[in-house]
Design a protein around this nucleic acid. Structure first.
Lengths: 202, 202
DNA sequence: CAAGTATTTGAACTACTTGTACATATTAAC
DNA sequence: GTTAATATGTACAAGTAGTTCAAATACTTG
């Protein structure tokens, strides 16, 4: 028997579930990166994956949710949350990894589009929030809690606020202001979060 | 001659431009508030305004841009940027006004949807950024610059970062995390921005 | 290994939306 | 008043969403 290409159409009939899933996710991810989120429709994905539209309707609640899952699968282990004992250095590492992920791996556009569409697609919002945003916020908070226990942060510091200020500043520039931004703000961001703008230093 | 209702259809033919514009904007704004941004299509707005679809295609580049303009017209003079001499109090006033605008005037959903759609609609993104986000960021920065000149902020403080951290933290919760939030975080937010999380103050 | 079940595919179909075209009527500008 | 601009009604092509049904094939249970 000659080997068949992975996407070979075999005519109608049931196919291995894993094969179908992988093909659909790969197609969705490719369309998302190449043509943007608005091109990720059940029709186009089905055509490109060599699957049937009905299958997609069965497994995913909305094209947005499919795109989100396809994207998470690609960017799974990209962020770092190290603990070297030096809080300032660790926060800078975290934010730098985030910015590099956006810039070097072309994540900026798909990420913006996914967050954007989540404002109108409850299914996508849920997938995004549960699978991506909150787990990472929790990781960042854990690192801060250790620092607080070691006395590097004030007793009454609000860890959620610190996380929101660090990452929120980045998202603010990305999504709301739409101004270009890069690694150069990371150090300033962390210093402002740690030492404030009103302090009397130097 | 008996007075006619504003939206009376007069059959085909040219109508005063101002009348058409006002009718279209009012209809778009109403649909946006009532049914959400995804319901703001040229078709529906034209029907509700008693105008022709062709007219809308002529005047606005996309339904998103129309919705944005309709919304800005309603929420023009809502935010305050006072200068009482007390920076901390003024920042709290600014943020409180922002949160109240979101909560009390039902701006949260339309605002989220507009920012969301802007991630995929360049026309909407431009309208939003130029007419809303950047002017307000500039106002906030002006207040900070005065504070800096008066010595209430460090010489090397980055005013953009302060603004991004204050407002970005709010947008982060609204758009990215999708967690409920209210006025109760405002004071903590400002204190963290001014005094930092690492300071040694009780 | 045999039979039954689950699920994918192909095809067709309805309803809806977008965007455009053209002729007609009416106002605004001169 | 005459002319130019433009809003409207109607119609139409193209594309998308979402569903239905039968035929075909993989998985699963006995």
């Amino acid at each position: 028997m000659s080997a068949q290409p992975a996407n070979a159409r075999r005519g109608r009939g049931r196919r291995p579930a894993a094969e179908v899933r992988a093909g659909v996710l790969a197609a969705a991810s490719q369309i998302l990166l190449r043509d943007g989120l608005s091109a990720v429709t059940f029709d186009r994905v089905a055509k490109e994956a060599g699957s049937s539209k009905v299958t997609l309707y069965k497994w995913w609640p909305s094209p947005g949710a499919l795109a989100a899952e396809a994207y998470f699968a690609r960017s799974e282990r990209t962020l770092e949350f190290p603990d070297t004992g030096d809080l300032r250095a660790d926060l800078i590492t975290q934010l730098r990894a985030f910015v590099r992920w956006l810039k070097d791996e072309g994540a900026e556009k798909p990420m913006s589009e996914l967050v954007g569409a989540a404002q109108m697609d409850a299914n996508l919002a849920h997938a995004w929030s549960e699978s991506y945003a909150r787990p990472r916020r929790e990781l960042a908070r854990q690192r801060l809690r250790i620092a607080q226990q070691e006395g590097q942060l004030r007793e009454d510091a609000d860890l959620d606020i610190i996380v929101d200020q660090l990452w929120g500043a980045c998202y603010h520039r990305l999504l709301v202001l739409k101004v270009p931004f890069d690694e150069s703000i990371v150090e300033g961001l962390v210093d402002h979060a740690l030492y404030g703008a009103a302090g009397r230093r130097s």
